[in-house]
Each structure stands twice: as C-alpha cells, then as structure tokens.
Design a protein around this nucleic acid. Structure first.
Lengths: 231, 231
DNA sequence: TTATTATTGTCACAAATTGAGACAATAACT
DNA sequence: AGTTATTGTCTCAATTTGTGACAATAATAA
C-alpha cells in the first residue's frame, strides 16, 4: 500500500536556483492538464533521512549529485492545506482518489534551496507533470498553495547568506570572469554594484586563482579568467 | 483516542534563552524517575498552526505570551528515532504503553529558539517531568537524543542573528546600563568586547533612549540607564 | 574637608575599509 | 593609425573601527 511507504503529513519543497542571461532562475513544475504550477517537492520514506529524501528528489529532477543545499524554513500553517488542488492534480492524471487518501491530508513542508550550474542541467518532469522548466524570478507564474511565499523567503535567505557562505561558487562554471561573478552578486542582491569596489573586495578575500585571459572577439581589452581556489 | 489529537511523526523542540549572572542560560526538563534531560518540546494538534503549537508550549512552560521566537532548523535524521528512551519515560510515569503507540514512532522535529526576560519567568515542569530549570550553557547535562546538537545550532544561529535582529531587547529588563547590554553581547558571542568601541557603535545605531543615572552605592561614577526606543 | 578608588562618558588620533573617480592598457574593428 | 568598449590598477576622500587617554563622577577612607 503506497501510504505505508512515506511519512504522512510531511513533505519538502525545493527552490532550485540557477544563473543564466544575467538573471537568477528557478525550476518550476507544471502539472498535467491543470494549469497548476508548483515547486519541485516530494515526500520522505519511512526509513529515510529528511536530507536524503531531498537529495533524492533533486537528483531525479536535475540528474545531479552533490548539489549545494540549504534548509531554510519549515512551513506549518493549517491554511496550507488545500485538498482540492491536490485532488485535481491526481484526477487529471487519471488516478482514482480514495476518500481520506494520504496525499490529501494536511502537510507540513520543510523548504530547501539549492544552487546549481545552469549549464549542467536538463530538467526532468515527474510522472504528474508535463514540464519542469527555468523561470526568471521576476516572471514567475502564480504558484500553488504558499509556494510564492516560499520562493520569497528562499531569496531572502540567499541574500543574507551571500557573503557568509560564498554562495556563488555553485552558480558559475569553473572558469569565469570578474564581470560574470559581479553579475551573480547583482542578481542575488537585486542591485547594481560598483565595479572597482567589487573587484578590490573579492580579490582581497584571496579565494580566487587567476588564469589566462579570455578573448571574446570583441573590440576591447580581454578580461582574466578566474576559478575558486580548491578548499 | 489520543493519537487522533496530534499530527503523527511531527514534534517541535525549543531552546529557551535567558540571561542572568552575566551568562546565557536555557531551560531544561528532567523526566520523572529516569535521570533523562531534554529540551522543552511538544506536538502539533491536528488543526493547529505549527507556530501556534510552539507558542502554546512556551506559554505552558514559562507563563509568558508574546515571546520572541525564531525557527532555526528542522531535524529529520532517522537516527533521532529511539523508541526505547521514550518508552522508559512513559513507563516511569506509570503509563501503559501499547504496541505501536504513536509517541514511539519516528519523529521529525522543528527546532525554535526563544529569548525571554529571566526575571519574569517561573519555569513549570509538565506532567512527565519533575523539573524545568535554568542551566548555564557551559554546564549542560547530557541531553536526550540529538538535543545537545540542537542547542549548539541554536546558539550558532543566535550569534549569526545578533546584529541583524537586535536580539538583546528580549533578554534585558526595560531599563539597563550600557555595561549590562555589553555583557549580553559578550555572553552570546562568547568573547570580550572593547568598551569604548561597543558604546560608540551602539549609540550610533540610534536605538536607545537615555534616562536617569543609576546609583548603585558603589564608589564610582554612576552609569546612565537606557531603554530600547519604541519602534 | 580632602584624598582615594573604581567606573563611566567622551574625545583624539591612528589604522583600516569603502566610495568614487581617473587613467592607462588593451582587443578588435574602421 | 585612429576608434571603441572594457579592463586592471591607482589615487584621494570619506567613513568606520581600533586603541588609548583623560576628565568627571559616587562612594569611601583619611
């Protein structure tokens, strides 16, 4: 019986950030035949660590292991509970939904954000959804339940952690220019930064190795490529 | 039936900080006839918001409403699950514990920290415990399950939030001296601060009102009393 | 009354960090 | 060779922080 496989009343949702076209983007699922959008999420198996469950879900959605992951809040209001929406999704997939089906119960959801290299991912929908795609933060569709709030809080936490946790390592390819790094910071903070101050600050942290220049074919001086130091 | 009253598999634990004798202290419960120590915690009613459940528990333990409260992490490892300890506690209280009793199941626990005015509280044990008392952070007994880790993470989060959230408002009486405020910062950070720098920094934030001097009877200049500005 | 003692409020100066702009050094194109 | 856009670096000012000095007290002791 399926409901014996997972812990009842407990779910997780993940805000998966990537960086492309100078913008922060996140992965959003669209459910079959319903027009409903939601964050990628899932349930915790009876004998599985919570963090393990989340990594399992991320692997399924992105194909990646060893993703940078932070838990940031657990949402537990009764008002999250909307049996109707979940029933719609299940029935639109041709499932027969019994009375008191466990997925229609009230859920408390532990929310995580993940940071991944946009280039390395081909997002995969799950059985209930027909797409799993990147959306710019400023062009999000209305999401199910409280998922828009969850995204808001994820972004806020990411901002708070920006300097403390050297977050940008995970959003860039291994080689990048100073300008690209600055663009990541600007996208996360939602504000322009001063070029010279930013460059001086980052270099003074001594976390970068400098490599060859990158010739873009454009008519101007070529920037150095950098990588984050090992360890 | 009791297990219908609460959400299964979901609990909360609270790290309740107070400040006294220049030290940070937290509330610890001791269970009847078992020698087991634990953080104050509880369960969430079927139709109750998670945050409401935690405030309800705090009210019972401290008698206070409107407590400063922050959720900081949700602990969900399978290894937290130790049916034995819980069974011991229940049986030491004369409960008959049925097979598969809900309280013996695996729990995921949402952890909060609270900041309260030490003076205003007379801690109250619950039905299962014979004491609920203040312990200095550096003299904690070994706690049940992963509760020592939970305390560690609470303190870490408190430190990270110290400047950002003006945490000390909640740990002091409404009137206090600059020196007392400094002692709170030092207790949280676990390090000495320089008097003049601290004073200048705090005053420049423009968050304090200055009141009359406080004459202690000691042979030296009397310090001003301060209060936090009403928003 | 006059030292003495411990602590407090404030200032002064040095050191470090950040803000803001200037400028020469490129790549590639005209 | 001249033009353009961008980059790496430097300079100077403005701000913040580190560090110590010092005068102004409350109570006590002489």
């Amino acid at each position: 019986m399926e409901e014996r496989k997972y812990l009842p009343h407990i779910a997780y949702d993940s805000v998966i950030f990537g960086f492309s076209g100078n913008q922060l983007k996140i992965l959003i699922m669209k459910y079959h035949n319903t027009g409903l959008f939601a964050l990628p999420g899932g349930f915790v198996k009876i004998d599985e660590d919570l963090n393990t469950a989340v990594r399992r879900g991320l692997k399924e959605r992105t194909g990646l292991d060893n993703i940078y992951l932070e838990q940031f809040y657990t949402f537990g209001d009764v008002s999250r509970y909307q049996a109707g929406a979940m029933k719609t999704i299940l029935e639109a997939n041709g499932h027969h939904v019994p009375e008191n089906y466990w997925m229609l119960d009230r859920f408390i959801s532990v929310a995580y954000y993940a940071l991944i290299n946009y280039e390395k991912v081909v997002p995969k929908p799950d059985a209930l959804s027909d797409s799993c795609d990147w959306y710019s933060l400023d062009k999000l569709p209305p999401l199910m339940q409280d998922h828009n709030q969850i995204v808001e809080k994820a972004l806020q936490t990411l901002r708070d952690n920006l300097e403390r946790k050297l977050v940008s390592v995970n959003l860039l390819p291994s080689l990048f220019t100073m300008n690209e790094l600055q663009k990541v910071y600007e996208a996360i903070l939602g504000e322009k930064l001063r070029r010279t101050t930013f460059q001086r600050k980052i270099l003074s942290l001594n976390i970068l190795d400098r490599h060859d220049k990158q010739y873009s074919g454009k008519a101007h001086k070529a920037p150095y490529l950098y990588s984050f130091k090992e360890k």
